[in-house]
């Protein structure tokens, strides 16, 4: 179903949703944009071509959240979590794709994460396609795209003074009840915009055989080379929409067991009580980060665990660029293990 939404009507529509939902949309915070709940004041709808600084995964996996409440008498209870119905408006397709990937981690058959699921169930995701390519993104390189629909209930395409609304799920349908069906002409216009955007994204590196090269060169000097100037901070992982590692810590004063975002780039991440650390230096940690995204995810679900949002490229304090690292990885030697 393809509907047409004049941009003029958007503020009122957003406000009308607030009766039933908490509406999150990117708003200006200092010098960047950030997903925040909409309030009475009509927020300026951000028209920046680039992403929010913090990926919307934070709306599903908060930086800090209580898992368990305990008492000093040693009793444990689930932490309470009330989630009101919510709409996340203006998710970029790379971020929506990332949340979809994270579903495979948190909604496994064997162990389901109740906190993630609760937030997931109550959320309607409205995506906004990127008709202007961003500088550091590489979504098409990793097999996704600026108008990819995975993980979205609605996809919006910016047509200038209106949005084309593509309804992708039942829950998305109810939100846009009074809109008119888009004309064929507008549909075609949208398609053209989408194709153009797709083609405008450069191919940053080749993904063919990348996994094998990374796996076979586990002990290569390559890792030392690419990680030499790495500082070991958590910027790349914390801003990454698909990084999900967390730490579990007891906060005694609050009597809660909480989970906090954690990063494989930290020394203590894998440090064992005995003092042994399987990843003692930045070399192993960089290898873990890249291998996880470009090899292990592929083994687990057959998809690359990076959606090419480009945040790690833009905000690395020392200008390390995952695209350059992977281009360099492509020059590594490898043997074809199984002939066709």
């Amino acid at each position: 179903m393809n509907l047409i939404l004049p941009k003029i009507d958007l503020p009122d529509l957003l406000q009308s949703w607030r009766k039933k939902f908490t509406v999150f949309l990117p708003q200006k915070l200092e010098r960047f944009s950030h997903f925040m709940p909409l309030d009475d004041a009509n927020a300026e709808i951000l028209e920046q071509p680039h992403n929010t600084r913090i990926p919307p995964k934070a709306l599903f996996l908060p930086m800090t959240e209580a898992l368990v409440k305990f008492t000093r008498f040693g009793t444990y209870d689930d932490a309470e979590l009330e989630v009101s119905p919510r709409i996340v408006f203006g998710m970029r397709p790379c971020d929506a794709q990332a949340v979809q990937l994270l579903d495979t981690v948190f909604e496994q058959e064997q162990y389901t994460d109740p906190f993630w699921v609760k937030r997931q169930e109550k959320t309607i995701r409205i995506g906004l396609g990127c008709h202007v390519p961003c500088a550091n993104g590489f979504c098409t390189t990793v097999g996704y795209g600026p108008f990819s629909k995975d993980g979205l209930d609605i996809l919006l395409t910016d047509l200038g003074d209106s949005f084309l609304v593509e309804v992708l799920s039942e829950s998305g349908k109810t939100l846009f009840e009074n809109l008119h069906e888009a004309s064929e002409e507008l549909k075609n216009q949208a398609k053209e915009i989408q194709h153009k955007a797709h083609d405008a994204m450069p191919i940053a590196f080749e993904t063919e055989n990348l996994k094998e090269k990374i796996e076979q060169n586990f002990k290569s000097d390559y890792w030392d080379e690419v990680s030499r100037s790495c500082l070991g901070c958590g910027v790349c992982t914390f801003l990454c929409p698909t990084c999900f590692c967390f730490d579990i810590v007891d906060e005694v004063q609050r009597q809660e067991r909480v989970r906090n975002w954690d990063s494989c780039m930290f020394r203590i991440y894998s440090l064992e009580a005995s003092g042994h650390n399987p990843r003692p230096s930045r070399i192993e940690r960089t290898r873990q980060r890249l291998s996880h995204k470009y090899a292990y995810w592929l083994d687990q679900i057959g998809l690359i665990g990076c959606t090419g949002c480009g945040r790690c490229v833009s905000y690395c304090p020392v200008g390390l660029d995952i695209r350059a690292m992977l281009r360099q990885a492509q020059s590594l030697p490898f043997e074809v293990s199984h002939a066709e």
Partner: peptide
Amino acid sequence: LEKRMKCGLGKCGRCNLGH
């Protein structure tokens, strides 16, 4: 095998050995 573990459920990410 053993490694540092937090969640024990394959979610927190730190005890991976390859995939």
